[in-house]
């Protein structure tokens, strides 16, 4: 069942990579009055059945948009972001083994759409920085919803 579809990787290293850039990246985000992930409208309402699809969609959002759109001059921050990107590619590969179980219902698609719309509201560099600064929200959500189960890996 869904158990096989969950991410078993040790998130602590991913969270550690993020903590290494959190202060610097969040400091660059000067638009405090908008968010990209808008957790109370998107992530907090996700039901267990939609966790796999939302995870897959948000991993793709970060890999295909955020990590590509972000331009970083600081080599140390760049290294941490690359490490994060590689971890996300690994998580994508893990979920790919569950294609038949990762159904996308309307609720999951709507949540993902809100996030992409929020991203499109901002200039692309600002949107990328803000999305990176909100990675702790996404990682905490993954940790909470993908915990304590064996998984496809």
């Amino acid at each position: 069942g869904l158990r096989r579809c969950l991410i078993s990787m040790n998130l602590h290293r991913v969270e550690e990579s993020f903590r290494g850039i959190k202060t610097a990246i969040q400091a660059k985000d000067t638009f405090q009055n908008v968010t990209i992930l808008s957790p109370s409208e998107t992530l907090h309402g996700i039901k267990p059945l939609d966790v796999c699809c939302v995870t897959k969609n948000l991993l793709a959002f970060y890999v295909d948009r955020v990590f590509k759109d972000h331009q970083e001059l600081n080599p140390q921050i760049m290294r941490k972001i690359s490490s994060l990107a590689n971890s996300f590619l690994y998580m994508q590969k893990t979920l790919q083994q569950c294609q038949n179980l990762c159904h996308c219902r309307q609720e999951a698609t709507n949540a993902t759409r809100i996030i992409h719309d929020n991203y499109d509201q901002l200039e692309v560099r600002s949107a990328a920085v803000k999305s990176l600064g909100e990675l702790d929200v996404f990682l905490a959500w993954i940790d909470k919803h993908h915990r304590g189960t064996s998984a496809a890996s």
Partner: peptide
């Protein structure tokens, strides 16, 4: 302050 996230 920086951004404060009570949950974490």
């Amino acid at each position: 302050t920086g951004r404060f996230y009570p949950f974490l």
